[in-house]
Write a protein that binds this DNA or RNA. Structure first.
Length: 269
DNA sequence: ATAATAACCTGAGGGC
DNA sequence: TGCCCTCAGGTTATTA
């Protein structure tokens, strides 16, 4: 159930156990993920992981011969556990390290992926057209305003389109639009630059505070019985069945692009 | 290029 | 308790 803050928290959690470490054994129990796991992954036994970083929601692990490209999909999660720890249900991949620790990838719905590229992963087909990182300076009011010019799609669709900006998932799209007072169905091209600038600021602060909260759970990342770095965010509209915390009016739920949108019809226009 | 729709899966939870 | 239905926080591929 990862949104960008969970992915960032995951990267920070696993990095100390993987960066600079050598892969002892790659165990792939289920190759049928979003795309089948290529057998070239099996050849990474003995390889040393140079670094662990993120682009959008993709987790990248370069090695000498190329790079692994991971994605958690809808239900994926990663833990660091001792090699001897019991195999859990839906634990499709276990990357055992020479250190005695293992990266364990669980993904019940199998929408996640593990790809390998011999080139710079940022040049990979799935990554090279991605929009800017939401927390970078490149993502600002001017950028979003230009991205919205002439666009008839809803603002929610636009900010969730990874080719415009990465990392804004369904929950944070709903939350940010609520805080910005913009209705999710509003046509992107019809919103003033001033209001889009506010939306940008809110997206940044919302994601930053969630990442900050995620940091507090890092201590549990390598523990068998701890939560794997995920956390509950206090949500103002997403999943709310009752009334708006601001105006006490009823929160509406609609379907947009096959996903749930929540909004307050009195506060958001 | 843009916009809308289908598709990939399993599990949780509600209603009866 | 069990069955059936709906829903789920992602993303790409395909179609118009």
């Amino acid at each position: 159930m990862p949104e960008l803050p969970e992915v960032e928290t995951t990267v920070r959690g696993i990095r100390p156990y993987l960066a600079g470490e050598t892969i002892e054994n790659f165990i792939i129990r289920e190759r049928r993920l979003r795309w089948p796991i290529s057998t070239t992954i099996d050849n990474l036994q003995g390889a040393r992981i140079d670094s662990v970083y993120r682009r959008g929601k993709y987790i990248l692990m370069p090695v000498a011969s190329g790079a692994m490209i991971w994605h958690l999909g809808m239900s994926g999660s990663m833990r660091i556990l001792p090699i001897s720890s019991p195999v859990e249900k839906h634990e499709h991949v276990e990357m055992q390290m020479r250190s005695g620790q293992a990266l364990k990838f669980r993904d019940p719905r199998r929408f996640g992926s593990l790809l390998f590229t011999e080139h710079n992963p940022l040049d990979h087909k799935l990554l090279h057209k991605l929009g800017p990182e939401p927390l970078s300076d490149e993502f600002d009011g001017d950028y979003l305003y230009q991205a919205c010019r002439g666009r008839t799609v809803s603002i929610k669709s636009l900010i969730m389109d990874s080719h415009r900006v990465v990392g804004v998932g369904n929950i944070y799209a709903c939350e940010a639009l609520f805080s910005a007072g913009i209705r999710p169905t509003r046509e992107a091209g019809s919103i003033s630059k001033k209001r889009l600038s506010k939306l940008v600021d809110i997206i940044k602060t919302t994601l930053e505070s969630a990442i900050e909260q995620g940091g507090t759970t890092l201590q549990d990342f390598s523990q068998a019985d701890g939560q794997p770095g995920y956390f509950k965010q206090s949500l103002k509209v997403y999943g709310v069945k009752g009334s708006c915390s601001i105006c006490k009016g009823e929160i509406n739920q609609i379907t947009q692009n096959q996903r749930s949108s929540y909004f307050c019809p009195k506060c958001q226009h």
